[in-house]
Design a binder for these strands. Sequence first.
DNA 1: CGATAATTGTTATTGACCATATCAAATATC
DNA 2: GATATTTGATATGGTCAATAACAATTATCG
Lengths: 172, 172
Amino acid sequence: MTVSKAAEATAKGAEAARARRDASDEAGEALQLGELSEQLGYVLKRAQLKVFENFLRCMASLQLTPAQFSVLLLVEKNPGRNQTEIASTLGILRPNFVAMLDNLESRDLCARIRSTNDRRSHILVLTDKGKAVLGRAKKLVATKHEARLNELLGGANRESLIAMLSKIANEF
Amino acid sequence: MTVSKAAEATAKGAEAARARRDASDEAGEALQLGELSEQLGYVLKRAQLKVFENFLRCMASLQLTPAQFSVLLLVEKNPGRNQTEIASTLGILRPNFVAMLDNLESRDLCARIRSTNDRRSHILVLTDKGKAVLGRAKKLVATKHEARLNELLGGANRESLIAMLSKIANEF
DNA sequence: CGATAATTGTTATTGACCATATCAAATATC
DNA sequence: GATATTTGATATGGTCAATAACAATTATCG
């Protein structure tokens, strides 16, 4: 609660000095990021937000979020799995996965089928429409989303970036 | 809502085949990630979660979140700025920044000072305790957090990773 | 100057996401 | 066959992000 007089004086000095410069200059100058721009977590988070934002724009016509896209991809690759298995490999908690599936099922993209082996579980399958939509989604991701990344980093860098991020995701 | 008979049959077939294999094997085998492991957004998000998790563990003794750490860093580097300026450069909306500052101020890490130039705005300053805590935080980040990253990737890769992420954050 | 517009910090509120506890039905275990 | 475990589901709470609105202050401009 107590700010040292020295600190307050320093702050006022800095504010006054900036105000003086701003009087001559037009717009308030940008802040110094300093060590922040070297912080892994900071730059990682901001990059992730930008990538998701771009993903949503690319997918606007299909109305698929990154999470929904990942579910469709995983179900396509692993037909015959139940909700718990799909959810847990995606890091989604089972309770939170229910509404997500309700959404996808209501849009006729995937379906729950009561398993005959274990009548507690629901087997997940893509509908025909789900397969078609996923196919279009993949094309959009490839031509709009990943293409933008290649353009920005180059193919080789893109691969090494993915590799490093995977390593962090798996071993950090 | 209708699943094609073919799709359902395929799903049942896959489930049955897996059940047969599982009968001989012990645990249910892992799912195939497939194209998911190449998706930038997917691996980026998972890496970010892991990094934040590790950051919180390293900072447990100081009780600083990544967002709080970034605020302290930015205020230290830019004394004499007001809430709007600090918040907006961090991508935090002004309304959401209020509670954050309430927290930091209640812990005596930073303080709001009514500006004499513009009596609407609050100038932000680190308290002496705030400076001390930030100093300890930086040491913890360097020795525990970033060190782990270096150990995992190597210094050169670490730098190129940060550079690529910055590029994505700024230009994607 | 004075009326109007814009800015600053703040509150209230909403929606998205994440996490825990709990439940009924079904299955596994002993 | 009694008990424990698993599966999908519901309810609920917490943390963030986003918008609207407000009082106090300052800027703008006739």
